[in-house]
Nucleic acid binder design. Structure first.
Lengths: 148, 148
DNA sequence: TCAAAATTGGATACACACATCCAGTTTCCC
DNA sequence: GGGAAACTGGATGTGTGTATCCAATTTTGA
């Protein structure tokens, strides 16, 4: 239902939010989120184009959030990489009967609206503040102490 | 969010429900739902494998619903062609901290649960019975009187 | 100024969703 | 039995999502 890229993007921003406002390198993010580094750089480029993150080259550079975690919603992140497309006109391409959706497509759109609403009303800060035994991102203390 | 195949499958079963319990040929379904005929036959094969529809060869044959419209939910149709996969374990593949989801993935799964619930609680009969000016399927009286 | 750190962009590869076509098979009905 | 109706299955084609690699570029700090 949600693409792999959306999953990756969310992991990244959650991790960035944990360390906000300090930048993290793609290398660090890849290790922390278990996302393939080469692909992660593409995902980050997308997030940067949409203004969700900012990236800085050179020594001491890296990726950081543009907004603070309490101003950034899950929806903004999702929409940056793969926008939730609400059903606004008849998918059969029939303009013959105006803008009203038929019962089937109205129900599908209602489901999309529910997801959109849930994502819109949740900030990254809320995800981090969640009172729970599990840490955000399902992270374990030290996953892979193998390379470098 | 929902694949093209899901959209096609739903159009087909709605149309079948309108004519239940009489079978419709793939040709008729393709014209009514504006789904490419060749691809539609593949979608129907999938629905048949999952027991949602039954297909009968030969003269007078065609495709018909296995259940009556008031016993068939949208969820059953969706799950037949592209199952909604709830998030039950940590997507990072970390089994280290049991079955509890982290705050991020619990929210994603909650969104999936909302969709699942909405689809599960709606039968095809309810879609057809909807009191509205738009007919189900966004159908117009005579779309394409061109071929044959 | 130069080397190292770090992102950027292009080229490439692979699998899967979407789509088409057609020969083969089943079934009905005359 | 035979022909027409109708689905089945396999082969094939195309576009997109996921993923990798590397040369080029930018930036910092010594």
């Amino acid at each position: 239902m949600f693409s792999q890229t959306v999953e990756y993007a969310l992991r990244v921003v959650v991790h960035l939010a944990e360390h906000a406002p300090h930048p993290r390198t793609t290398e660090q993010l890849a290790e922390a989120t278990l996302v393939p580094k080469a692909y992660l750089s593409k995902v980050i480029q997308g997030l940067a184009r949409q203004g969700v993150v900012r990236s800085q080259r050179g020594v001491g550079g890296g990726v950081s959030l543009v907004k603070s975690p309490d101003e950034l919603s899950i929806l903004e992140v999702v929409n940056a990489v793969e926008p939730i497309r609400r059903i606004r006109t008849c998918p059969l391409g029939l303009t013959a009967h105006g803008v009203r959706l038929c019962p089937l497509h109205r129900r599908l759109d209602n489901a999309l609206a529910g997801v959109e609403e849930a994502f819109d009303s949740t900030t990254l800060a809320e995800v981090l503040a969640e009172p729970t035994s599990s840490s955000p991102l399902c992270r374990v203390p030290k996953p892979l102490p193998s390379k470098k």
